[in-house]
Design a protein around this nucleic acid. Structure first.
Length: 685
RNA sequence: GGCUAGGUAGCUCAGCCGGUUAGAGCACGGGAUUCAUAACCCCGGGGUCGCGGGUUCGAUUCCCGCCCUAGCCA
């Protein structure tokens, strides 16, 4: 028996869980359940990640304390995970006594071992808000390509990376005032000292090969010191011996894994050191998204090693979730929260769909709603559940108990023989292959029943035993498949266990078929998904503007790209065809105010505009109106903009929308404007 | 811009180290059946394997360039 501690990444406590979180939790949960079915002791812990500037500011904005904010969110996160059947041994919070203790212990150990250095850095400071500004809280003009409204760390238009002080005309996102430079002493973790250890560790099988390839980049660039402190005001843990300095959220976040297991150990009388001491024989597995790889494959193993703890056994990274082929996006309505899903549908179909598409690599996964429906309805309901459903009636009519022996033991053995293979596919995270094998076996089971035709046999009273035998075979085939799927569909497996009279607990149980035992009355184990309901997962009228989430989520998208507007209609004489009101409503037309306007070098047709679409949504849009309008004439004007036009990369930068104009074959273009009273952000309908 | 990964049937995806007619599920067309949640079973149509070069007797599979998508850049 192996002792295993498994984690998934801590969700940030500034908003609800979305499908990306659910995907990761489902993957981790399936893996943990599969390990338990093999007889291993496997505990899955997680926690909310609660610290940092975004949470501090969000609480301020809502007029509550950060503690109140994270308490509310934690309750919501717990409930959502639970409703998706995520079986956490413990779900904790990084804002906890255990986490403070672990974080301080680690810091002191690192400091004592000489891994912490101190030096002054210059950083942007907002004198109005009286706080230092993280890079993403400073915006200005890109020093390289002059694109407007870029974050302080990199330019989304030309891709340049730089520091906030390089920006032209920088402004604080918080107060809107120009930041000043201030000096402050920070604490650094000396990562380079762990280079050889990390190189060895990354090639030791702890991470997938393609991930190790990615890490080469960090090594070849040279490992830099990691800044682990932040200045007050900051929501987090104050660093012992350094008043006014706080641990950077990314230092204490992974420590949350320890804190959760410490709380678990306290509650259940287990021993923390069994998992974490340097000589631990337990396994430690982290499931994460590929976006946070380096925190888990560089800093975290180094911090653990430096502080005298064990390193992770494996870090399992997965790709991102796209919806209908595109990045999840609030403006597209495809930013699906776990709660939104649960309000409409049961959890298991989604677990099944995720499992059916989760492989061991870091490829992104697409959630296609159409595929989701057909996959679950046909694989699970039409094929798997159908096996039990079509046999149960015959068994009930034959007395309600199974036959004393199997008519086709060889076929059964084929099914039972793959148990070990299925188990190892789960362990290697190749769920996609496991599901494929199971589905293929389900086909074989249906073929078997089809060939035996118990409904024909049942017409002959002399053959009642044959009918029962065939269905006993079918029920037992069903049982093996249900066992193989039980990590994915735990609630259905439990109901199936009740129907079978034997709970599903171990892979090995299937080595012994059920014979002669009594079946409970059959009740439908799963119902079909209604495509109409599934379609409502995507919001018809997406949230209009990215509200000031830029403040609460530093990584909020600057632009809000959207589907290309596809208008499908029969052709008509003018070449456009009829559209319905639904087609029209796909267009997000809004009034915008031109804030800035300039010529574009290298183009005699285009003007570069900065247009305010309300609610802080400022877009860069290129428009071919230079022949009719001068930049000066544009500034301050109100115009009508298609706000959800797919952003287009042009030689001069990205154009995030289109300004509406009237024109025909004769020269000149004419801007469309709202009447007096029209204001930025108003929608045009 | 650099790095990593991906671009295979209408859709979602498999295809190990290069080798004979490129696979599955769904969708579609035809047939069979009625035990089963209009489920299941059989047959079929459908792909210039992102584009362009190269290596090779032979490339979806290897190499180079380009285009597109996603993520990361402390």
């Amino acid at each position: 028996m192996r002792r295993i501690l498994v984690t998934s990444a801590l969700p940030y406590a500034n908003g609800p869980l979305h499908f990306g979180h659910i995907l990761e939790a489902v993957q981790t949960d399936i893996w943990a359940r599969a390990m338990r079915l093999s007889g291993h002791e496997c505990r899955y812990v997680c926690a909310d990640d609660t610290h940092g500037t975004p949470i501090m500011l969000k609480a301020q904005a809502e007029g509550i304390t950060p503690e109140e904010l994270i308490a509310g969110i934690e309750a919501e996160h717990r409930a959502t995970y639970q409703d998706f059947l995520i079986d956490h041994a413990f779900f904790h919070s990084t804002h906890s006594d255990e986490n403070r203790l672990c974080t301080e212990t680690i810091f002191k150990a690192l400091d004592a071992a000489g891994h912490i250095t101190r030096r002054s850095i210059r950083q942007a400071y907002d004198e109005t808000a009286q706080m230092f500004l993280p890079d993403r809280y400073v915006k200005g003009m890109c020093p390289k390509c002059d694109a407007q409204d870029q974050y302080g760390d990199s330019c989304e238009v030309c891709g340049a990376t730089y520091s906030p002080s390089d920006l032209k005309n920088p402004l604080s996102v918080i107060s809107g005032t120009p930041p000043v430079e201030r000096e402050s002493e920070h604490l650094f973790f000396h990562l380079a000292a762990f280079e050889s250890m990390l190189k060895e560790w990354t090639r030791s099988g702890a991470i997938h090969e393609s991930v190790a390839n990615k890490l080469e980049e960090w090594f070849s660039g040279g490992l830099r010191d990691w800044d682990i402190s932040r200045d007050a005001p900051y929501f987090g843990f104050e660093i012992p011996g350094h008043p006014g300095k706080y641990f950077y959220v990314w230092l204490d976040a992974p420590v949350g894994y320890m804190a959760a297991s410490l709380a678990l150990a306290k509650r259940d009388g287990l021993i923390f050191d069994d998992w974490w001491s340097a000589d631990s024989t337990a396994e430690l597995h982290h499931f994460i998204g590929k976006d946070i790889l380096y925190f888990h494959t560089l800093f975290w193993p180094a911090v653990l090693q430096g502080a005298g703890y064990r390193r992770p056994t494996q870090v399992h990274a997965h790709g991102f979730l796209t919806v209908n082929g595109q990045k999840m996006s609030k403006s597209r309505g495809t930013f699906i929260t776990g709660r939104r899903y649960l309000e409409r549908l049961p959890p298991e179909p989604l677990r099944y769909y995720f499992a059916a598409k989760l492989g061991p690599g870091i490829d992104d996964m697409d959630l296609s709603l159409e595929d989701f429906v057909s996959r679950f309805n046909s694989d699970v309901v039409g094929k798997l559940v159908n096996i039990a459903s079509r046999c149960a009636g015959f068994v009930a009519r034959g007395g309600g108990h199974l036959a004393p022996k199997l008519p086709d033991p060889n076929l059964y053995d084929e099914f039972a023989a793959v148990a070990h293979r299925i188990a190892s596919l789960y362990e290697s995270r190749d769920f996609i292959a496991a599901i494929r094998e199971i589905a293929a076996l389900a086909d074989r089971a249906n073929q078997y029943i089809d060939a035996q035709k118990p409904w024909n046999l049942a017409k002959d009273p002399a053959r009642v035993d044959d009918v029962l035998a065939v269905c006993t075979q079918g029920i037992n085939l069903f049982r093996t498949l249900m066992t193989y799927l039980s990590p994915v569909l735990p609630a259905m497996a439990e109901r199936a266990g009740k129907f079978l009279g034997h709970p599903i607990l171990r892979w090995d149980d299937v080595q012994q078929p059920l014979l002669g035992s009594v079946l409970a009355p059959y009740e439908p184990l799963a119902t079909r998904l209604d495509p109409k309901v599934v379609a409502t997962l995507i919001e018809e009228t997406p949230a209009a503007a990215p509200t000031p989430t830029a403040v609460t989520t530093p990584k909020a998208e600057a632009a809000t790209p959207a589907n290309t507007v596809a208008v499908v209609a029969p052709p008509s004489p003018d070449g456009k065809g009829e559209v319905t009101i639904d087609d029209f409503s796909k267009l997000d037309l809004r009034v915008g105010k031109v804030l800035e306007c300039g010529l574009v070098d290298g183009s005699d047709k285009l003007l570069r505009l900065q247009i305010d679409l309300g609610n802080g949504d400022v877009r860069q849009i290129f428009s071919g109106i230079r022949e009719s309008y001068s930049p000066e004439a544009m500034i301050g004007r109100h115009v009508v903009v298609i706000a959800n036009l797919k952003p287009r990369k042009m030689r001069f930068g990205i154009s995030q929308g289109m300004v509406l104009c009237a024109s025909n074959d004769s020269p000149g273009v004419f801007l469309v404007s709202p009447d007096e009273g029209g204001a930025p952000g108003m929608t045009v309908t």
